[in-house]
Computed example of a mutant assay.
Amino acid sequence: MNEELGTVQAALGARARLLQWADGGLVVDLLRAASGAGWLDLLTTPTTVEALAEAGGVSAERARRVVEVFVAAGVVRDGEGPAYVLTEEFAALNGAPAGVRLDDAIDMVTAARDRVRSALSPDVRRTWEQDALVVARNWGMLPAAATRAIFSMAYDAVPAYRDRLAAGGPLLDIGSGIGGALLTTLTMFPELRAVGVERAEDVVKELRERAEAAGVTSRLEIRCADAQEIDDEAAYEVAYWAQAFFPDDARAVTLEAARRALVPGGLLLVQELTPPAQDAPEARLHSALDALVADSRGVPPVRTAEELAAELRDGGFEDVEVTTTPIGRLVLGRRALD
């Protein structure tokens, strides 16, 4: 009897954990629906349940239930009187002042779910193409004042790299995405000229549109090409490699192409995308899921700054240094003086 009771209790505990995991996904789905119904825009200012109900075409009671979920999740808070308003964090995400958009984040979550669902399907190939634009939009930022302030903190931590940007470069940007880093950097340094390399055609199309909007097209060449095929020789003072989005079988060749493209003494900068996993169970789960999704896309799990430094040394770079900045750790390497 005691053994059977223990088994039932264990099963109930597992079920409770499963439901807890599901709660986050349900909130994301509800956020997508609320965004589509225009609720989040309404909630940028104090809004009543009745006004939300009318906008969504649902009953006041249903609207109240949804609001209760959002209050519990920290999406909205009490406003003035019987009204509600987005919390500061979600107001910023919905407003996207620097291009970090709620809808893009939700699309990224959906794409990750699709990857996880196919993780045990042997017929599913590891391809990056199917959600390349979704990933690029999630990581891309607009060249706004806030973004420039963030990048300024990073560049101030690597003054040798910053000074070459200020002097006009040129810069080789490898894996440009939709240009969050590239376009921001170009707007920060008016003398800088750059070449951006990105192989996903739909991503390149959006990159071109964003470059036009940023007013930097006269100083930027965009190539729709595989970075492994870069054939420039000693042409760039500095290079940035978005290494986190490159598969294992392309990394060594890409790194060699970058080294060749730099002038002797030229500098290559890479970034540790996220810090190493913490010991908390939630952090370990997040890290493990990130690694699984990355593997299903054909790219490696997150690499630490120390691992990146070793990779640059193996690729023939000298004076490799890891620098801690207010926005994460950077790794800088130098092409040898021939």
Rank of each mutant, 00 (worst) to 15 (best):
E3G: 09
L5M: 14
V8I: 10
R17G: 13
L19N: 09
L19S: 10
Q20F: 11
G24R: 09
G25A: 11
V28H: 03
R32C: 03
A37E: 02
G38N: 02
L40C: 03
D41I: 13
L42H: 12
V49M: 04
L52W: 03
G57Y: 06
V58M: 13
E61C: 02
V67H: 07
V76E: 09
R77H: 07
D78F: 04
Y84H: 15
L93Y: 01
R101L: 01
D103A: 02
D107H: 13
M108L: 11
T110K: 14
A111H: 08
S118K: 12
W128L: 13
A132D: 01
M141K: 07
L142C: 08
P143G: 10
A145G: 10
A149M: 12
S152N: 15
A154T: 10
A157R: 04
L171R: 08
G175M: 11
I178F: 10
L182Y: 04
M188Q: 01
F189D: 01
E191P: 02
V197Q: 03
V197N: 02
L207R: 01
R208N: 06
G215A: 12
T217Y: 09
L220W: 04
C224W: 03
E233I: 13
E233A: 09
Y240N: 05
F246P: 00
D248V: 03
A257H: 05
L262M: 10
L262A: 05
G265V: 07
G266M: 04
L269G: 01
L269F: 04
P275I: 01
Q278A: 11
L285Y: 12
S287N: 12
A288G: 11
D290M: 11
D290N: 10
A294H: 07
G298W: 04
V299N: 00
V302N: 14
A305G: 11
E306Y: 04
A310L: 08
D314Y: 00
D319V: 06
V320R: 03
E321F: 07
T323L: 10
R334E: 09
D338H: 08
